[in-house]
Amino acid sequence: MSTKLALSAAALLVASVAGQVVAEEVNVYSNRQDFLIKPIIDTFTEETGIDVNVVFLKDGMAERLEREGRLSPADLLLTVDISRLMEVVDKDLTQPVDSEILEKSVPAQYRDADGQWFALTTRARAIYTAKDRVGKRDDITYEELADPKYKGKICTRSGKHPYNVALISSMIDEHGEAETKTWLQGVKANLAQKPQGGDRDQIKAVNDGVCDYALGNSYYYGVMLSDEAQRETAEGVYINFPNQADRGTHVNISAVALAKHAKNKDAAVKLMEFLVSDEAQHLYASANHEYPVKDGVEPSELVKGWGDFAADKRPLVDIATHAKTAVQLVDDVKFDL
């Protein structure tokens, strides 16, 4: 009978007296709370016998990894935004993964060409409209939010929040810096209130009559519709997918990357590959009211009920290159003041 030895967190191995590895573990640093990914992790462990430890980090993932250096126990990094993802990549805190399964499962625009990261789900940057005052707007665009006819009718969170930075970056990629600055000035002039709160607060503001239009990620709408206490508020608005007649709706991602100093690389890659399986894609997207990144995997019934939409196909790495400029433009037009 073997006796299990508790090794250091960096080793993450359970060994027998004979020295043979009888079980493996993977350490995950995640921007997404443990309970949201627990069903997927539990299924992976049941199928492989590999235990997974999740450390929730709302912020500061890059700083923690830099501080820990080679002693970091992290094997995998789960992020919820292209900006946060590119921060760990740009700081050389990840390593490439060569996997045919990952490359075949994740479309090119949603993964790094060198294998540094792979998207798992997408979420749309939607425009919400008041059901009783505006109605459904299938023809709406991001650009028209700067039209003076919307003066006093728009709500949004801070322009410096990563979700808005990514949207502004996509506008720079589409229209250039000067035109995007003019657009931001127009949107600011149309705000019903100073940028504040989160995306759910914007939906509430539309329902409460503070504004008629609001920017917000699609999955927050799903969260509210699934919560009895918030459902009535969410049911007072329509979700609209902008720019369907041209480039498509801007989408952001949740993604996975292999930590630079991963001690359990083989087991970690197995988990990465599992996360793009049909089973895990459906579970992960359904738990978070997002869209599976893998073609052919259906979203949840709730999300499907919002209708199909065309997503912007431009590579997210191209959008991410404009992030610093986007933040500067927010400051230049004093968007949040």
Rank of each mutant, 00 (worst) to 15 (best):
V14K: 13
A15F: 05
G19Q: 09
Q20F: 00
V22P: 00
V22E: 15
A23N: 13
E25M: 11
E25W: 00
R32K: 02
Q33C: 00
P39C: 10
D42R: 09
T45R: 12
E47L: 12
G49M: 03
A62L: 05
D75M: 02
L76I: 02
L77K: 05
L78M: 07
S83W: 00
S83N: 11
S83L: 07
R84N: 13
L85D: 09
L93S: 10
T94D: 05
V97G: 10
V97E: 11
D98Q: 13
L102A: 12
E103D: 15
S105G: 05
V106L: 09
A108V: 09
Q109Y: 06
D114A: 11
G115Q: 06
W117T: 06
A119C: 04
A130H: 10
K131Q: 07
R133V: 01
G135E: 08
R137E: 10
D139Q: 12
Y142K: 08
E143W: 08
L145H: 10
K153Y: 00
I154N: 06
C155L: 04
C155D: 13
R157N: 08
G159L: 04
G159E: 10
H161E: 10
N164L: 14
A178E: 15
T180W: 03
L191G: 13
Q193W: 01
G197D: 09
R200A: 14
V206S: 07
N207H: 10
N207Q: 14
D208C: 01
G209F: 04
D212H: 07
L215T: 09
S218N: 11
Y220M: 09
Y221W: 06
E228C: 02
F241C: 05
F241Y: 14
A245M: 06
G248L: 05
G248Y: 07
T249G: 10
T249D: 02
N252I: 01
N252M: 08
N252F: 00
A255K: 08
A257V: 02
L258K: 13
K260H: 11
A262I: 04
K263R: 14
A268Q: 07
K270C: 04
F274W: 11
V276R: 01
A280Y: 07
Y284V: 00
A287D: 05
N288G: 08
N288H: 04
Y291C: 00
E298I: 00
V303F: 03
A310H: 13
V317Q: 12
A320G: 11
T321D: 11
H322S: 08
Q328A: 15
L329Y: 03
D336P: 01
